[in-house]
Amino acid sequence: MTAELSGSAPAVTPLVPLVPQRNRRRAWKQALIGWSFAFPFVALFIVFLAGPILVSFITSFTDLRSTDIRSPFGVNFVGFDNYVDVFTDPTFRKAAVNTAVFVLFGVPLTMVLGLLAAVALNQGVVKIRKVFRLGFFLPYVTSIVAIAVVWRLLLGTDAGLVNGLLDLVGIEGPGWLTDTTYSLPSLIVMAAWRNLGFSMIVFLAGLQAIPTDMYEAASVDGATSWQAFRRITVPLLRPTLLFVSVITSIGYLQFFEEPFVMTQGGPLDSTLSVSFHAFNQFSFGNYGYTAAVSYVLFLAIAIFAFAQFKLLRPKT
């Protein structure tokens, strides 16, 4: 079809208008057509995304509460008061530390497991690779609610499967979700389990872009598998690593649904995240404060993503 159509007419035929006025009319028409395609998206985008982002920013400098929605004239600008409140709030600090721990341990764990799975899948089992890929990826596309139900039962203190198995070998398992020492690590492991399929798929795509003759050459030169991995795979996978790292960090910095359905942030706020804290304040009706917390998170995400681009950018 391509060949037929482009064969029947010259490839490039800009109609050169002789009169400048016609030129302007054409430009107008072009702009109109372009915007007619963009308009439905842009209108919805402004109302439901860009607008709310802006409103949230403005709100973070006001003392807006849910009770003020009907009579917005009682709302005052309070400068940076909300931000000061955020940083002096011990609950926020706790949530910020939890979120940082979640990201700093969760992202590397997820990526290492995803890379391991990708490298393994890229080497063996050609025939049933699809089955493995499906299995590893399944948790990623499953509702967090269903996962939470199952994992809560897996990690239950008395009747959980994990502690039941530990009991068989004579170990008394801890309260994975009810002990403040184990609650956050448990959620990190669960998140890694759930998300490693994503890294695996992206890494697999990246691995396939590496020409196999590079490995053959290395093998002829007597390189071990580990050397080949260190010297060929990792450097060539650098852009993919950066991409997965940025995407996973952006997701993990917002982590929320896991503690929401698994632990409700407890015990003793040990799994409360920044997003969760903002959501709680939203439920209490403290809209100004909510907006400030969410903008602090936004800023953290932007800085984190930017830093990774700086650090991990492929060297030229």
Binding site: I53, S56, T59, Q254, F279, T290, A305
Partner: peptide
């Protein structure tokens, strides 16, 4: 640029809207 904005930022304004 909006792809980096966390969902919680728009949650409250969207709910009010």
């Amino acid at each position: 640029a909006t792809m980096m904005v966390p969902a919680i930022v728009t949650f409250m304004p969207l709910f009010v809207l």
